[in-house]
Amino acid sequence: MTEHVWSYQPTSGHVAGTDLTGYKVEATDGSIGKVDKHSDEVGDAYLVVDTGVWIFGKEVLLPASTVVRVDPEDQKVFVDRTKEQIKNAPEFHRDKHLGDAGYWEELGTYYGTGAGTYYGTGAPFDGRPS
């Protein structure tokens, strides 16, 4: 895993500016859905994945560091987590969580990076509102 959860791994093949919307997302043990929204901002990169019926129509947010490979030819993104790990991740609600520092910290912790960062800054999250 990369040192920074909100950055793409240099070996992923992701090219900044590439629109990943609509790409299929593959966990280590099978398909989990399609990219509904993404950001490739340095230090704040993520994917919002529409899981369709797999998790009863929910969306999940995956930090960019979970992406191990992008296949532009087949329009697929491969992540280094199992379906179960993704299913058990902190629940994502678009209206509530985009910009919610506590949620971003929770995700950073869940995905194994400790304190996480505050969304929108790329800076370590220190628990204080901006």
Rank of each mutant, 00 (worst) to 15 (best):
D19R: 14
D50K: 05
D40I: 04
T51P: 04
E41Y: 12
V49E: 00
G17P: 13
L20I: 09
D40K: 07
L47C: 02
G30K: 12
D44E: 12
E26L: 11
V25M: 08
A45W: 00
K24S: 12
T28W: 12
L20D: 06
D29H: 08
D29C: 08
T51W: 01
D19T: 12
G52V: 02
D36W: 09
S31E: 09
S39E: 07
A16K: 13
S39D: 06
V48T: 07
G22S: 11
D50L: 01
V35S: 11
G22F: 05
D44Q: 07
A16C: 10
G33F: 03
L20T: 07
V48P: 00
T21I: 15
S39H: 08
T21F: 04
G43T: 06
A16Y: 14
D29W: 10
A16S: 14
G17S: 12
A45E: 00
G52C: 00
L47P: 02
T28A: 13
G33S: 06
G22Y: 09
G30M: 09
E41R: 13
E26Q: 15
G17Q: 11
S39M: 08
G30P: 13
A27P: 07
S39W: 06
T28L: 15
V42N: 12
D19G: 01
D36K: 14
G43E: 06
Y46M: 01
T28R: 15
K37V: 07
Y23P: 00
S31N: 15
L20N: 09
T18K: 14
Y23S: 04
K34T: 15
T21W: 03
G30V: 03
E26H: 09
D29S: 10
K37Q: 14
I32Y: 11
V48S: 03
V49I: 01
T18I: 10
G30L: 08
H38Q: 14
T51Q: 03
D44H: 04
E41Q: 12
Y23I: 02
K34E: 15
G33A: 14
K34V: 11
Y46S: 02
E26I: 06
V49D: 02
L20H: 07
V35P: 05
D44G: 00
S39P: 05
H38W: 01
T28D: 15
D50G: 09
G22A: 11
V42Q: 09
L47R: 01
E41I: 08
K37R: 15
K34Q: 14
K37N: 03
H38K: 04
V35Y: 10
T51G: 03
E41C: 06
K34R: 15
D29R: 07
T51A: 04
S31Y: 10
G17T: 12
G17M: 13
D19A: 12
V49C: 00
L47F: 02
